[in-house]
Amino acid sequence: MIWILDITMLFFLVVCAIAAISIKDLLSAIIILSAYSLIMAVVWVEMHSVDVGFTEAAVGAGITTVLFIATLARTEGRSED
């Protein structure tokens, strides 16, 4: 356990989570969500759960981002609220 790395990662995780739900532009929200997934994968590996971290990196940061962007291409790309 490297506690200073843990604290830094969790801090960025919270920053990404708040930014993803408060930003208006949906493309930016998707990219921030992808960054959130990448940090979460590092946190999983840091917690000695390599398998879950692998899945998070492949699914969360990879496929989900692509599917969200492909869906966004069919919509307006801006949040109303």
Partner: peptide, 25 residues
Amino acid sequence: VMISLFFDVSPPESEEGELPDYEGV
């Protein structure tokens, strides 16, 4: 299943490009 998911949500080929045009992006 992942490939068919992508083909299902991706926009049809006739539209312009993969992404909509944003101002400033």
